[in-house]
Nucleic acid binder design. Structure first.
Lengths: 218, 218
DNA sequence: TTATTATAGATTGTCGACAATCTACTTTCT
DNA sequence: AGAAAGTAGATTGTCGACAATCTATAATAA
């Protein structure tokens, strides 16, 4: 573990992220401040700050005077979040395309290959990670710190809530096609086509995920 | 004053927002927790939570172990923020256009008239408020809570930092033209045109504002 | 004089405690 | 039995204090 000048607040945020990711805290479940404080062996002050920040990002639902709960978005909210993510990343990609060269495209090609491998082996955790790398690689190149920050936050939320479903939602071959399509469209360097392609990419996933999530609850 | 079940944290956020808006706290200036606590007559706990949240929204720059400072974005960051806002609102408008009827358009027409009046009288505070109403009216109709939240946050940031410059940046006639153009384009109901129009609207303002802000600092 | 080091003051990070509020259960009434 | 009211327990909101860290001034050396 490298230099850890993190404040407790940051560490609590990481802890909660991991705990939710691993399914030890499930959507809708209460997150008691005192429980967290005892579990981590620290006081409630930094914990409250972490909870408020995670709530601002949508990972947690905070109800004043009542408590904090793991986010449990409605079908509609899920679709909305994916839609918004598509709009942001779509613009980022069309904006970043000017600084793309063949080396960047082939990097993306390789990530697609790795993604398909992970999908074939059913490693949904790996799959989600490589997918994240793929999309963030495109995102980063737009060089707009503000846009990157917003989009990453949204991505983190979606990753956290739905990465466990990925191997069930798409066949490996679909995953390959969907992402190769993005790379190919970017190679065309047509900004409008790029935006539309990425929006559609997220819209599809949003629809499937929301359906999956609502199935599970009934 | 209506029912006030606000927690202290919320009140501190409002207080800081107003204080910065009125220029009593200037960009780059330090915001001491103890000073705030004594000024408001409360303890530091809710103040810290408010500061962290405002930092998350970009109103404040937070440096761990050092302190909080009023945001003082660079030229580049200013342009980026306006650009991003344009992308979000542009999409929101093109998405909301389906639910627009003539009543909505004429409502926007009236706001444009009021805006020009305020501009003629040099009321930059009024002008900024009506402009905010205009853009939020469009935004709200998209019915995407997530998108609305993100866009509003960004708008609040820009409003706070730059509303004081508005009467200096645009002539009343320019303001009329720029906003009437948006309404007219929306009347055409062409989604692509709407997105481009609103993006351009914000891009222009971003460029002017960033220029103005950098002039002032030199 | 300029650069470096010490030092005192101020500021943030964290803690444990108490009051206000909410939740869930028990009791009471119909 | 079912609904309403009351009560005990738990949870959140806020507070004041202390330790760790940073900042700015003063003292020292080159």
């Amino acid at each position: 573990m490298g230099i850890s000048k993190d404040t407790y607040t940051d560490q609590v945020m990481s802890f909660l992220y991991d705990t939710i990711l691993k399914g030890r805290l499930k959507p809708g479940e209460r997150i008691s401040e005192t429980w967290l404080a005892e579990t981590l062996g620290i006081s409630r002050a930094p914990i409250r700050e972490a909870l408020r920040l995670l709530a601002r990002d949508g990972l947690i639902e905070y109800r004043p005077q009542v408590g904090n709960f793991v986010a449990s978005p409605s079908t509609r909210q899920i679709i909305e979040a994916y839609l918004t993510r598509g709009v942001l990343e779509g613009f980022a990609a069309s904006y970043a395309i000017e600084s793309f060269n063949e080396k960047d495209f082939s990097k993306l090609d390789k990530l697609v290959v790795k993604m398909v491998e992970a999908a074939r082996q059913g490693h949904h955790f790996n799959l989600a990670n490589i997918d994240k790398q793929f999309h963030e690689y495109i995102l980063m190149k737009c060089e707009n710190a503000h846009l990157i920050e917003l989009t990453k936050t949204l991505g983190t939320l979606l990753h956290l809530l739905f990465c466990k479903h990925w191997t069930k939602v798409y066949e490996p071959e679909q995953i390959r096609f969907r992402h190769q399509q993005i790379v190919d469209t970017m190679r065309s360097r047509e900004r409008q086509a790029i935006e539309n392609c990425i929006r559609e990419h997220y819209l599809q996933t949003g629809r499937l995920m929301s359906q999956f999530a609502s199935d599970k609850r009934s």
